[in-house]
């Protein structure tokens, strides 16, 4: 049946893949998965991005684990993020592939005040590049930049270096102050929009992204 000629000429079967295209060029749905050790503030970052607010005790929400937000990128494409938070605890690790399956974007978060969280983030990046969809765009994010003066353990350069070695986007953010949080997502959206539009290719996109990451480190 799949070979049946149909007037619309669309391939058979249900829509596939992470990026579900709506009517041409209008909007895109992007599954974004948040990875990182428990307690690094993954869901805080997501909440900050989606709701634009943060307080230390947090705020009661229904499903801070799964959030959506639509943003517009330069060429007037609307990108709708489906943000999937994952559990950082090791005991839930075995089914992580189910979370990042088919996701075109991932944000790997670590805590700049914790060495273990950085190692864990590196492991995540490795796992993603090996097992996830090869087109996946990964952003490495160092959270808790507001605490840099008191407790920084991971120098900005370390994060930056690891990111550029692995072709990741890199930003240091603070979910608490909101610093750079939106940038992480808008940059991801821009990159994905550029990736899928036919006239530009990814090699010309990457340098701008690496440059962009510069401003992440020095904000404090």
């Amino acid at each position: 049946m799949s070979s049946a000629k149909r007037p619309n000429g669309r391939a058979s079967g249900p829509p596939v893949g992470g990026a579900r295209n709506g009517p041409e060029g209008k909007s895109k749905q992007i599954k974004l998965v948040l990875l990182g050790e428990s307690g690094v503030g993954k869901s805080s970052i997501a909440l900050r991005f989606v709701r634009g607010e943060f307080n230390e005790n947090g705020e009661a929400t229904i499903g801070a684990a799964y959030l959506t937000k639509t943003i517009n990128v330069q060429n007037s494409t609307a990108i709708k993020f489906d943000i999937w938070d994952t559990a950082g605890q090791e005991r839930y690790h075995s089914l992580a592939p189910m979370y990042y399956r088919g996701a075109p974007a991932a944000v790997v978060v670590y805590d700049i005040t914790s060495q273990t969280s950085f190692s864990r983030a590196q492991a995540w990046v490795k796992e993603l590049t090996q097992q996830a969809n090869s087109q996946i765009v990964i952003a490495l994010v160092g959270n808790k930049a507001d605490m840099a003066s008191e407790g920084r353990v991971i120098p900005t350069e370390d994060g930056k270096e690891f990111a550029s070695n692995n072709g990741l986007m890199f930003t240091e953010v603070s979910a608490k102050t909101g610093m750079n949080v939106d940038d992480v997502f808008t940059n991801l959206a821009a990159k994905i929009a550029a990736q899928s539009s036919p006239e530009s290719n990814s090699t010309t996109v990457r340098p701008t992204n690496v440059e962009r990451t510069e401003k992440g480190g020095c904000a404090c």
């Binding site: 948040l34 428990s38 307690g39 993954k42 869901s43 805080s44 997501a46 909440l47 307080n55 005790n57 947090g58 705020e59 009661a60 929400t61 499903g63 801070a64 684990a65 999937w84 938070d85 994952t86 559990a87 950082g88 605890q89 839930y92």
Partner: peptide, 18 residues
């Protein structure tokens, strides 16, 4: 948390799964 008059914590996946 409403009944005890405090702000409820946000529930991320770290909390949701247990």
């Amino acid at each position: 948390y409403n009944t005890i008059g405090e702000n409820a914590p946000a529930i991320g996946a770290d909390d949701l799964l247990p």
